[in-house]
């Protein structure tokens, strides 16, 4: 979606100020932010949504809301939306109403003893290509398509309809655009595509020979 999260190359956000923002959590908000992080990770273990459905729930917001909520505020807003959409909790329960016993039961609940193994296992997204070969090879010149779906995509606006070249073939990976709709089977070849800075930013590129890469599934690309 052309959402508020897609800000690569945008102007107006000011300095990075790394020294003032060096911690994992915002200064003064460590308590609730750490808890929000952990609740999100633990609830995700239930398997009621894919990582891409989670990302879409975060970015599918008005720009005002996205920028006002703050980082972990967005996480919480997405988590509560997903829990309610899947029927695990009701809006009334989230608003402090009585706890009901007729909601969808969780697939599983992460016990403390399973945290270490679960984090060490992670969630690999590489899939068996079942004989499908990658269409592109390193060095091939490609153009990104001008895709502007209403749903989730990982093709950033700044990289649309631009000519670059294949730097690496990264594997056959779950396809985010379809996984965000709940399709856990969809997978495509994934490539790292490299662009010259001058191609992306035109005459105002800091240094036209600098490069930017992004990771593109095959349906994002066409041969030049």
């Amino acid at each position: 979606m052309n959402g508020p999260h897609d800000i690569g190359g945008a102007h107006g956000f000011g300095p990075v100020a790394p020294a003032a923002h060096d911690g994992h959590y915002h200064a003064g908000a460590e308590g609730w932010e750490a808890r929000a992080m952990a609740i999100t990770v633990a609830a995700g273990f239930g398997g009621h949504w894919t990582i891409d459905e989670g990302r879409f729930a975060r970015e599918d917001r008005t720009p005002l809301e996205y920028h006002q909520l703050g980082y972990f505020g967005i996480w919480l807003a997405a988590l509560t939306r997903l829990l309610a959409e899947r029927g695990l909790v009701t809006e009334d329960e989230l608003a402090g109403g009585p706890v009901r016993n007729d909601t969808v039961p969780p697939n599983r609940c992460l016990p403390a003893a399973e945290v270490g193994p679960m984090l060490a296992r992670g969630g690999p997204v590489d899939r068996d290509p079942q004989g499908r070969e990658p269409v592109y090879r390193p060095g091939d010149v490609v153009r990104t398509k001008n895709l502007q779906p209403r749903g989730h995509t990982r093709l950033p606006a700044y990289a649309r309809d631009k000519v670059g070249r294949i730097a690496h073939v990264q594997g056959f990976h779950a396809f985010a655009d379809e996984s965000a709709k709940g399709d856990r089977a969809a997978a495509e070849w994934l490539y790292t595509v490299v662009f010259d800075a001058g191609t992306l930013w035109g005459a105002v590129a800091e240094n036209p020979a600098d490069e930017v890469t992004f990771d593109a599934w095959e349906p994002y690309l066409e041969r030049v």
């Binding site: 952990a38 609740i39 609830a43 695990l88 909790v89 329960e93 706890v99 909601t103 403390a112």
Partner: peptide, 18 residues
């Protein structure tokens, strides 16, 4: 509190993640 009561998360697991 809500998610704990509904068996969706366990507080000790949250401590462990953090």
């Amino acid at each position: 509190t809500l998610l704990t009561r509904k068996g969706i998360v366990e507080s000790a697991a949250l401590d462990e993640i953090i």
